[in-house]
Write a protein that binds this DNA or RNA. Sequence first.
RNA 1: GCCUAGGUGGUGGAAUUGGUAUACACGCAACACUUAAAAUGUUGUCCGUCAUGCGGAUGCGGGUUCGACUCCCGCCCUAGGCACCA
Length: 829
Amino acid sequence: MLKWFLTMKKYDHKKIEKKWQGQWKKNHVVKVDKDDQSKEKFYMLDMFPYPSGEGLHMGHTESYTASDVFYRFKKMQGFNVLHPQGFDSFGLPAENYAIKTGVHPAETTQQNIENYIAQMKSLGLNYDFDEMVNSSDPEYYKWTQWLFGEFFKNNLVYKKTAKINWCESCQTGIANEQVVGGECERCNTEIMQKEIPGWFFKITDFADALIEDLDKVDWPEYTIKNQRNWIGKSEGAKIKFEIKNFDKKIEVFTTRPDTLFGATYMVLSPEHKLVAELLENKDLRFRNYDEVEKYIIETQKKSEMDRVEGKEKTGVLLLGISAINPANKEEIPIFIADYVLSGYGTGAIMAVPAHDTRDYEFADTHKLEIRKVIVRSGDIEILSTAKTKKGDVEIFCEKGKLINSGKFDGMDSEEAQKKITEFVGGELTTNYRLRDWSISRQRYWGCPIPVVYSPEGEARLIPEEHLPWLLPTDVDFKPTGISPLADSKELKERTEKIFGKGWIPEYDTMDTFVDSSWYFLRYPDAHNDNEFCSEARKKWLPVDLYIGGAEHTYMHLLFSRFFVKALKQIGLLNFDEPFMKLRHQGMVLDSEGKKMSKSKGNVVNPTEMVERFGADSVRAYILFAAPLEDEVIWNENNIVGIYRFLEKIFRYTNEWIIFNRDNEKINLNKEIDSLLHKTIKKVTEDIENLKYNTAISSLMIFVNKIREQRGNTSENQLMTLFQLESFLKILAPFAPHITEELWAGLGHTESIHLEEWPEYNEKLAKDDKHIVVIQINGKVRSEIEIEDGEDEENIKKRALEDEKVQKWVVEKEIKKTIYITNKLLNIVI
RNA sequence: GCCUAGGUGGUGGAAUUGGUAUACACGCAACACUUAAAAUGUUGUCCGUCAUGCGGAUGCGGGUUCGACUCCCGCCCUAGGCACCA
């Protein structure tokens, strides 16, 4: 014993990890040959991070480790795996930091990227950083601009002046999709409304395809649902209402044209164009002009959140005008109210208080007529059918049969929707919640929009030969309400030099979501200066497995999907969906189960954890602690379990090397061999299904078994070299450093990560004996050991002879028995 | 209010075409080694009971079934998301 104790090495994770991280780089272990046609391709993608000053966080650590494990696994299985990483490096934090300190965003971004790369390497993440993509690099954004140009030429981008969400702090417009809880997603300032001209991508053109193609992908159910809900398709009708004594019509969108006879008033959103027109028309001036104007101003101050939260349904009657219900020609009042939003439908509604909760609440407050026109089918006589109860009156919001609707009485809702729409000259139509994507930002640190304006104000695309259209450097970062680029002398001169006197450049930059909507198309051909991706390299697309946070389920995924569909329509791609399989990692919480945040001071730094426990332990622990998609509690006290596990393997392997290296007469331990094959099977299947926690647990069970057997056997009979090596290989994706060290210790000169993934023998992975549980009336009373495939009658006979079973069945009639092969026998008495 | 996910020992979690509930890990306890501690090892650890037995337990209450963490009905709680969508 003393001998091996003296020669035994200690598991020094720092030394081992540093050594191999250096070696991998030197020996090109991470290199991918993108043109290798001999192997099947696999594209494993991570959501690229924004390189913030705070560095990598634990969420990245989990997600990137998960993909790194899968990458190593697929590579060992013989796939040619592309597993790139890059940086989503345009964005507000760097610009805000520049405003505060004067340090140019390019500089801080570069520093942060270097820091991120160092952190990623310290975790043993094997990215080939030569194939990196960096969205603020002109070599990259040249192609962002080029793609914008393709959209421009193909009518998929247009300019319009629109009231948009405005963030006072960022001094920029914010897309609807980027407003979180009425606040700016990035800085949490409350969003206001402001009229701003800007460029929009026609994402709504693809609304139906964006819904339908969700059938083609292997994504989490809820992510698919979220995408569907975000697009928000609804069937209905557009119907026009005449205004009395005014030659204009109000068009409404309704999902319930069958309730038209019950429309007892109309509501316009305060921003509705017609309201402004009516206000300007002196002949028609409302009798309550001041009240109306005051209400409009109050609404403008409100964010969408405020409008939503107001419990009282406020609104103002437009005194002096009225509309005609086209179904029954009755004169009905018109209101403006902020519960009607300008951005959805037509910005105007017909209100049917008897059959819509919100309309009812408004009608109740303003004492308006409530006319019932729908009753539950087969319930014509009784008018009191109810779904939702509101005060004393009952509201029925479902479809049913019509009453009080003239010649349509007795008709079913379904049929009446078509017939009534037809009757009033309306139009059946589909409406979407999705709006076109506003991409203009009045910011500095973003991709310049490659457009110039003629002296007459006409927008023209900057020709390809002038790309990349560089972001100027001579600007002041301070927010003024206009784009920082308007400051640049150089940009102005550059524009005039190329296009002539009087031409001015577009000053806005693009939403950073544009950069991240196509980056995965660039990795296969990251250095191509002539194309965004060559035809040959497009064979890598689409992405086979994408791992990233669930927080991106709406915007990033939707925008990326839109890009792929748009580029297919243009003819630049030939597939429909960017990400075939998608999985999310859960949040990493502190030891008390709370969200990590700077303000709480409970943020765990991955690099510090790597220092203390080693990259292998950090990797294995974060995957072991919980299923990938669940929340992970980062508990430092628990990581020691993984550390001990690795240490045991380290000690065991070194013992093995000392005693067995030159010993050719190791006897095959059949029990260990069977367990090994079971473990290979389990780990292989679990990795394939991203069930890393149970894969690691089965590796632990294997090690425990070996430790247990060590007491019963002489050391040189424990494991063959082949068995030991197979075990190290299936551990390698999780703990790449320690396995590499032990692999080298066994005398290998090539990396373990270039080895083939062990095959399991189905026969050996199967037991030839099983324990069958004997139940009496569903309660476990005994168990017997059986041969694999033993005859049911025989098992039954043996079970009834069992002493413990005898006690229960003696003098009882056996009604029936149920046998589950190799598992269970239930005797019913 | 709506949508989604979930509720299993002291803790993280395992097990679902319905078939031994609590794998694996942490923690805890006892023992061994040690002058001692750490480390390591061994044993034990859902609850009740004197128990190699018996009974009970997967948020709560019912149901289906030979058998339910798993399926059905009703309710409670937690987390995340959405929100006047006409």
